[in-house]
Write a protein that binds this DNA or RNA. Structure first.
Lengths: 340, 340
DNA sequence: TTGAAAGCGCTAACAG
DNA sequence: CTGTTAGCGCTTTCAA
């Protein structure tokens, strides 16, 4: 059997209270007994049971991370950085892929609460406002990542999507492009479900356009589910819908890749005939040929900040709500060039 | 406060023992009281505490998954499928990226045990045999995925790497190639640490070669860390090392992509001048241009089988050790063509 | 068919 | 400085 605190106490000839104190470094213990206890722990290879200590109201040092899909490179990177920071700070993380499915979200959250995780990071396409509101009023430590819900007063770390959209558009305009198509990201195969981040990016796009005296043309904005195939299909529709734009701004890298395929299929050259810009700067962007001009999200920073914010909440140090907004960075590669 | 079993008992006017019985469906309870208890649970929105029940020796319904790197698309896909199957079966999973670092592996395992996870799936580059042996003699539920340690008698689900190597080579030979280079995968920046799976694939390569009456030439086998940059560098070295081979078999997709870059950089055409084959069939393979001929691992199957095996172990249904070996599948795309 | 009571391993007063 | 003891929320005999 695994040794318990009793075994250690017996071995060190002290009470379990004393052992508990040296484990948690609370109270005052003489150097001598502390040493004796430490030796006993060592000798028995004792490891305190997180389960037992959690039952007395202490932390489990375990967190939940909800994201739409762990197999999506962007979220996988987010998850990795969250995990890394957690590891540094002494937390493990339970990963949950929700597929933008509110039922799954609810189920995961319920399970995580049963398991007494210390907090949850929401990177999901979370639109189940009611559940969030509930968690909040229970004062459950919660942080959103890469996702704004303006209606909710919740801690958030995200990237400035508006600025990203603005920058891309401004850059494309500077290259001489005037007709710029957009492929926005929706979820659950429902074009009505445009992601909030997409909306913001489009807002930036629109503002840049208008700042340049160019009108916003709704017909240039297409909506697609976030898979390569869907992106390809929708980009194809955009291309076939009339005189094609000279540039396409895909609102994430996966869609950009779909777009590249659609463009190629029509015998158009990239970037000469059509410039393409993505968003996220995932590993995919450097792999495609030609390398994709895209907007880098500071994924590592986002993961770290989210974790740090959550830990602050858990430790109760901070109770004002914070919104951390990081700046995106345009990565100019080879899918864009001056319009000739 | 969250309701406890006592609250439910009071509400339903029964003892906590009775409530426990209806929760776990043990013992015999009259329909009438069962209904009353169920209603009370409903009314109070009661959820049993996993922590408390774990303390009495029951399961935590939480598992650990150790992999080298969650941000690597291959492992991210594995993780996703493991998670999915876990979800179906009622388990959550704590993901741990080890970076092939034995110290991290040890630390994660120790933490997972403290948290009383019900079992662990090892997808790591796990070579810390001693730690595994220890877990085994404690009879701790353990399954290896995508990784064989022949010396250990442990449950495993993996792909037939030998066959994969053989198939690729045979295919390349059938295309007329005779000089076939190999880029194998090592870890920790140490060429001496060639992954077991690489060794098996090379064994298949060698056997196919010899079956065709062609000698195995050690000078055609190069070792690289598994990153695009390293792959590119090492592939470059291979290409520059003399008359270049007409085909290169990269032992995973990431290395294949590095190889493509190196080949391009030297002005060589793919597949006409040099054919390239990868391994894994990750999302990367369909994204590169041209699409990569590669070997598909049945990732989904692997994840599912590993989870199912682990659950069998946890439930103690099965105590003989099983090795499940799945067949890889050659996906012919456009980085290969007959030698002209 | 139900309930009383003894733990599970640990923490946190409280007393000495 | 150290030990006694009462829980934490749940499971599981064992009686009734």
């Amino acid at each position: 059997m695994k040794p318990t605190i009793y075994d250690v106490a017996k071995e060190a000839q002290v009470s379990i209270a004393t052992v508990s104190k040296v484990i948690n470094d609370t109270g005052r213990i003489s150097e001598k007994t502390r040493k004796r206890v430490l030796e006993a722990m060592e000798k028995l290879r004792y490891q305190p049971s997180v389960v037992a200590s959690a039952l007395t109201g202490k932390r489990t040092n375990t967190l939940g991370l909800l994201i739409p899909d762990l197999a999506n490179p962007f979220f996988a990177e987010v998850a990795r950085h969250v995990e890394d920071r957690g590891q540094e700070k002494g937390f493990n993380v339970i990963m949950c892929s929700t597929d933008y499915n509110p039922a799954k979200e609810a189920k995961y959250i319920s399970l995580l609460k049963q398991k007494q995780v210390d907090g949850i990071i929401l990177g999901s396409g979370f639109y189940n406002d009611q559940m969030i509101a509930e968690l909040q009023q229970e004062n459950f430590p919660l942080v959103m990542i890469s996702q704004e819900i303006p209606a909710l007063d919740i801690d958030t770390v995200s990237v400035d999507d508006f600025m990203g959209g603005y920058q891309v558009t401004q850059y494309l305009l500077s290259l001489g492009h005037r007709r710029i198509g957009v492929i926005a990201e929706s979820f659950q195969d429902n074009p009505a479900n445009v992601r909030w981040s997409s909306k913001e990016r489009i807002r930036g796009y629109r503002e840049a356009l208008e700042a340049a005296g160019i009108g916003f043309d709704e017909d240039l904005v297409f909506i697609s589910n976030s898979t390569i195939e869907a992106g390809k299909r929708v980009a194809g529709a955009l291309l076939d819908a009339g005189p094609h734009p000279t540039a396409i701004f895909a609102l994430n890298d996966v869609l950009a890749i779909g777009t590249i395929k659609a463009v190629r299929e029509r015998g158009l050259k990239i970037p000469e005939d059509i410039a393409i810009v993505g968003f996220d700067d995932t590993i995919l962007a450097t792999i495609v040929d030609p390398p994709l001009t895209t907007v880098a999200q500071p994924i590592r920073d986002m993961g770290y900040q989210a974790m740090d914010l959550l830990i602050e909440k858990i430790e109760g140090k901070e109770n004002t709500t914070k919104r951390i907004i990081l700046s995106p960075q345009l990565m100019i590669r080879q899918t864009t060039c001056p319009l000739t």
